[in-house]
Design a protein around this nucleic acid. Structure first.
Lengths: 342, 342
DNA sequence: TTGTAGGCGTTATCAG
DNA sequence: CTGATAACGCCTACAA
């Protein structure tokens, strides 16, 4: 078999079929009239040569990449993976390839994002991964844009986010119902979805005459939560009493805090209650099982993909904003539940 | 601001700088001599027009996509996410974009893979995601190819896998040391890395005079493990005695089996021991903590990316095969440890 | 040192 | 119905 390394071009097909390249293109794309007999000849030539149109040629001529990008702050942990899953699934169904970019640990993020922009027809960006200025530049260039989990809107971009304010208030209220009064907030963030939650929790606490604590910063990983947990639960570092509940920015942080508590010989929720956010797989299986707020991560990705497709195809001209509801998932880590058990 | 929607071309830059496009190209790519003064004019024009070379143009002319693909059987669960993380990180460092494709639930996989092949300079494919015939076709077309976690080799393709046979034997030996004799294997697979493990475990059992059990098929998810666990642990469905240890194909299955055991009122490891594979995050936090075999998932991705880069750049002409060692992680779910505690 | 012109692989617009 | 031919945006011999 003389397997040529390079794949055939439309010219070779045309020559073999004894027609012009225009006819080949028409026959293949059904974009114009072609005599049945001619089409057959073309198709046979295509078959024999195993011709596949070059993506580059198609894209250059049609002006479309048939691909879209997604920019993550990080790819570690279950949260982003789930979003990607939902995104890829829908994008693929819509006939679009997915190019992923993680900005984690990368220096020249703006350049990477610009490069990505040159490869796609539109992109999704997680809030707080790319400087506002760069996002604005991309948006201004006319690139269809969908922001995920971003607090403030960007001109011309769609927004898909999960609900934060109400669910955070529900969580706070639930914890107050358990009788906790000395809250600690694990995982600081001055903008984006997490800050929305802290603000909401702070408001509820204030309504109950409790001064909202300042969120303690930490990395959003198990290790980060562990380190912060050790700090929060050590007597040395605190003037006031030990917190009776630690509300964590996400489940990974919460798992780390639980580890730290165990190490200190503290029982959960007996000595200190812990809650997470997201409802990742480990939350359900943890010891104790983690009270958390379930985010519809796949749906987040899926909706972003659909919104982006609408933008790209010009189905919609006005930007849309979707907020997906979340669900409070009460498990053992926040204490026994007198209400439910009554 | 008259922000043109379309970005500038090299022609506009050339015109503004009062030079030819060839000079612009040379100035930008440093691919030929350019007078310092001329270069300056060009760079200023580039700046003013915010010119970014079109990827399509560059790729078409240079014959390179500066991108590579990766084909997953699925994107759910922590395993694939970790591999992707390692892969994207290295690929990005090497200046290559990453296009992901998940074949899960998709009908026209061969077409999707062919399309992907048209967008990249090389690709990584997980074992058992694409029919051998199609893989061979891609390889024969001259596309640099790296297979991950695939049992048998493909002509011309690199292979990166984690070690299975030895670690499975180690696991089996450890469990025999606990005194277990009635094994169940959860998660059937007739080829690929998982079948290697079963084979290895079977061999060790046989050496101890135990007839190796047939692996029970199930979906590789928590739900799949739960369903199978219910079956394996129900008296009705078994003529022989209940298994005293269930070795699972991966951690997710194991977590599901644990759930099923709990539901049946069986204690782990008291009534039945359970082991997983991979060491995903939930394994460490599960109740009881899961004995498992840690796979270096990020490293798997990272090495695949490097191997692929070598193939693409022709650094290597003979295919390489890497096997990454794994680590037996003994936790509570397989029983108390007299040896360690002695 | 710089410019001209051909090529990369399609699509699409015109004439025929 | 079909065939030239001009884009699309860039790179790079080859000439000047």
């Amino acid at each position: 078999m003389a397997n040529s390394d390079e794949s055939a071009t439309i010219y070779e097909v045309a020559q073999r079929a004894g027609v012009s390249i225009a006819t080949v293109s028409r026959a293949l794309r059904g974009t114009g009239p072609v005599a049945a007999k001619t089409r057959e000849r073309v198709l046979r030539a295509v078959e024999e040569l195993r011709f596949t149109p070059s993506r580059l040629g198609v894209s250059l001529a049609s002006g479309r990449h048939a691909a879209n990008g997604i920019v993550f702050p990080d790819l570690s942990g279950p949260y982003f993976a789930e979003v990607l899953l939902g995104y890829e699934e829908v994008a693929s169904e819509l006939g679009r390839s997915v190019i992923v970019l993680s900005t984690r640990g990368r220096a020249a993020v703006p350049d990477l994002v610009r490069d990505l922009a040159g490869r796609v027809d539109g992109m999704v960006i997680f809030g707080q991964t790319v400087r506002d200025e760069v996002v604005a530049e991309i948006a201004a260039s006319g690139m269809p844009l969908v922001m995920i989990a971003r607090g403030d809107a960007v001109a011309g971009a769609d927004v898909v986010a999960s609900e934060n304010t109400e669910s955070a208030a529900r969580l706070a209220t639930h914890l107050l119902g358990h009788g906790y009064r000395n809250f600690a907030l694990a995982g600081g963030h001055d903008q984006g979805d997490i800050s929305q939650r802290w603000t909401s929790i702070g408001r509820v606490l204030a309504e109950h005459g409790i001064t909202p604590p300042e969120p303690s910063p930490c990395e959003f990983t198990v290790d980060g939560g562990y380190a912060l947990g050790r700090y929060l639960l050590s007597a040395h570092h605190h003037s006031g009493p030990r917190p009776d509940v630690i509300v964590c920015a996400d489940d990974q942080v919460a798992l780390g805090v639980i580890l730290a508590a165990e190490e200190r010989g503290l029982s959960i929720p007996g000595d200190v209650a812990v809650t997470g956010w997201d409802d990742i797989m480990a939350a359900r299986h943890a010891r104790p099982a983690l009270t958390t707020v379930r985010q519809p991560m796949r749906d987040l990705g899926a909706r972003a993909a659909r919104a982006l497709d609408e933008l790209i195809n010009g189905v919609r001209d006005t930007p849309s904003s979707q907020v997906i509801p979340t669900e409070l998932v009460v498990r053992a880590s926040c204490g026994s539940h007198p209400l439910e058990e009554a």
